[in-house]
Design a protein around this nucleic acid. Structure first.
Lengths: 159, 159
DNA sequence: TAATAACCAAGTAAAATAGTCGGAAATAAC
DNA sequence: GTTATTTCCGACTATTTTACTTGGTTATTA
């Protein structure tokens, strides 16, 4: 599992979605783009993968947008990153156990252990946990205020 | 902290060093290159950083090579990777807490938590732990056999 | 029928990665 | 003291990956 800015954008966008889908039937990429300072085009690319991964549902047309396909409590951060980032071969052997002479390499288990450690951490952590956290709510509130003042969009704005 | 093949090569090379420095006063990059199928030139680059990080000592000239500067038990995997790989900005905000409007971003803590998790795992893990492990000893023994058969080098060969 | 928004494929510029190349300096063996 | 060995050092380069943009098409609502 790789970790790039794309994956981070994906998590942030999913949080935005989780925080807003109670207010609107669907959350548009345009609104997320405003909040998170990412281009709509790039978000499209990200959401195409999130959709392929079964994490969101999209609806076209005016007032269209996205919703989480399941509850935020059941979606793990791992799933989100896994959906958008290419898997990384942390083991150098591409998961195969025959990296050297048809046998495992010296550090094979080290890398798989680390990889499992990371995956496990991110898999236990659910989108809902983060959205629910006090600090996030505070940031969201601040962002909401700032955006409402600044740029009269039709929705409540976050960042 | 980033994790690239360079970092993995570094760990593998350090293991090779730990496994061999009892047999020879100094372990040459040439021998490690043979074992690990990396070019000497690339290993030089890696060891220049390991040396700068204070993890190894180098001696020039015939029968020269490298030794661990400390016991394998006191060198953590984190130190090795940290010495050769550029640090990664897992947080997108480059450690600063003002990524958005002079305030923290929504997912700031998520990324720092993850980063700490990974660092902590790799810092607790010492080179000595891995070298001592049963499985590594087995692989080393196999590699030793294979190399001795195949390519009569002056040293006991590992892979 | 006009506007909105998802959907899709392809292209591109910049950065990072994974190396190579060509030499110089130190040291040991002969 | 010459030769071989090995570290040491800086720069260069090819490839891959990343982070996007561009230019459309299709569905849906007003």
């Amino acid at each position: 599992m790789k970790l790039t800015t794309k994956g981070r954008y994906a998590v942030t966008a999913m949080m935005d979605l989780a925080l807003h889908q109670s207010e609107h039937e669907h959350v548009s990429l345009k609104s997320i783009a405003n909040h998170q300072e990412i281009s709509v085009a790039y978000l499209e690319q990200i959401f195409s993968k999130l959709k392929a991964g079964g994490l969101v549902n999209g609806i076209r047309g005016p007032n269209g947008g996205y919703r989480l396909s399941r509850s935020a409590e059941s979606i793990s951060i791992f799933e989100i990153i896994d959906a958008v980032d290419e898997p990384i071969d942390i083991t150098r052997c591409h998961g195969k156990k025959d990296c050297q002479d048809g046998e495992v390499c010296l550090t094979h288990e080290l890398w798989t252990d680390l990889s499992n450690q990371i995956s496990s951490f991110l898999d236990q952590l659910k989108l809902g946990d983060i959205v629910r956290s006090e600090r996030v709510r505070k940031v969201a509130a601040r962002q909401s205020m700032r955006c409402t003042e600044a740029q009269q969009t039709q929705h409540v704005s976050f960042n």
